[in-house]
Simulated assay, not measured.
Amino acid sequence: MHFKPWLVYLVIGFLGLVPLLMAMLAGAVANCTKCQLSEAGVGPCVIAGKDVGKMLYAMFVSGWFSLITLPAALLATLIYSVYLLVGR
C-alpha cells in the first residue's frame, strides 16, 4: 500500500510533537485557571468542581518524552525520505 508522502510526514511530525503539545496544553490550562503547575509534585487544581491536578501534572511531565520522540521523528523522517528516493 502506498501512502501520500505529505500525509506520512504530517503523521510523523504530529507523533513527535505530541508530548510537547501535551505539556504546553497543561501549562495553558493551569495558567488560565490560576493553578500552580510544577515538576516538583502534584498541586490542587479544581475545575468545575473536580480536582484535575494529577492529570495536569502527568500532562506537564510528559513533555520530557519529547527528548525521545522528537529525535525519533527526525530519524523516521530521514528513513522515509531515503525510502522514497530509493523507491523511485
Rank of each mutant, 00 (worst) to 15 (best):
I12D: 09
M1S: 13
T69P: 03
I47E: 05
R88Q: 14
G63K: 08
L56Y: 05
L20T: 10
E39A: 15
L85A: 14
P5S: 04
I12K: 03
A28Y: 07
S62D: 07
L15T: 09
G27V: 00
F3D: 14
D51G: 10
V82K: 15
P19N: 01
V18D: 03
M59I: 00
L78D: 04
H2S: 11
C35P: 01
A28H: 11
Y80F: 14
A72K: 01
L85M: 03
G87C: 05
C35H: 08
L84R: 15
P44R: 15
C45V: 01
A76M: 08
V11P: 00
L17Y: 04
L25N: 05
L78I: 04
L56N: 01
S62H: 04
W6I: 08
R88Y: 02
L85T: 07
A28I: 11
V52M: 08
P44I: 03
F65H: 03
I79C: 09
L56S: 06
G49W: 02
V52S: 13
L15V: 12
C35F: 01
A40S: 05
A26L: 13
V86K: 15
Y9S: 07
C32F: 13
F65S: 10
Y83V: 00
L17G: 08
L75S: 10
K50R: 15
G27A: 05
A30R: 06
F60I: 05
V18Y: 02
A26E: 06
Q36N: 12
Y83R: 13
P19W: 05
A26W: 00
W6G: 07
